[in-house]
């Protein structure tokens, strides 16, 4: 092996020397290094990227495993829960004989017995009266009707002593706070409908059919 060949192979790499007419590389003085804060920024961004990638992978469930294996699970049945409620055992319940007691200013009529609102689904429900409407269009009378509800989870048999809260009319949310009913359980709903004291004489001998929507929203019970 000749010396030139050996030098071409074995010589360590060296920084190329500057050619004539080109700029001479500046010596690396301490003052000329990049500022330390810039380096830290780069490191921070890199760290943030690593963390973000990790979070993204966790959120999306992706992995980067080099090895993988699969195994079949036995077929299983997935059953969804349900969210249903009934009023007096049915989806739509008509309260009879309310109109046997005729209204007058400042007077009201109350359901003689509580109406059972049952949670027949599998999720706890926060139940409230969401909407009260007068679908038959008796707008003048509707203006002077006052709906009040009481929900009793104690299983009361009469509505005589129920503490009533005013329920708003025509689409607004009732002021009555929701009552949570667990699956398979029920609450007792009492309803009182009154005519306001300022109802004019022109509403005498009129009547109205009302519709009250009872809504149960799924809730999580701790």
């Amino acid at each position: 092996m000749q010396g030139d060949e050996r030098g071409a192979v074995m010589k360590p790499l060296r920084r190329p020397r500057a050619l004539p007419g080109t700029a001479t590389p500046r010596p690396r003085h301490r003052a000329d290094r990049r500022p330390r804060s810039t380096l830290r920024t780069i490191l921070a961004l890199a760290a943030g990227g690593v963390v973000a990638t990790g979070v993204a992978l966790l959120a999306s469930g992706g992995t980067y495993a080099l090895w993988s294996d699969t195994a079949d699970l036995a077929p299983a049945t997935i059953t969804a829960g349900s969210s249903t409620l009934t009023v007096a055992g049915v989806a739509e319940h008509a309260v009879e004989e309310l109109d046997l007691t005729l209204l007058a200013p400042g007077r009201s009529v109350t359901t003689p017995r509580p109406v059972a609102v049952a949670n027949t689904g599998t999720t706890p429900l926060a139940v409230t009266v969401s909407t009260i409407a007068i679908p038959d269009g008796n707008a003048q009378l509707a203006e002077f009707l006052r709906f009040e509800t009481a929900v009793d989870t104690g299983g009361g048999e009469t509505c005589d002593l129920a503490p009533f809260a005013v329920a708003a009319l025509t689409g607004e949310s009732a002021s009555q706070p929701p009552v949570t009913i667990l699956p398979g359980e029920e609450a007792q709903l009492c309803l009182r409908i009154g005519l306001t004291a300022d109802a004019p004489a022109s509403v005498q001998a009129t009547s109205a059919v009302f519709s009250m929507i009872v809504t149960g929203d799924q809730v999580r019970v701790p």
Binding site: S83, V95, V209, F210, M212, V214, G216
Partner: peptide
């Protein structure tokens, strides 16, 4: 990632008729 919350609602209806008297 599409993280969200969905809730179910159930409804029941109560109907009736009220009548006003005369003086």
């Amino acid at each position: 990632a599409g993280i969200g919350h969905a809730y179910w609602s159930a409804h029941g209806e109560l109907t009736g008729r009220v009548a006003v008297g005369t003086l």
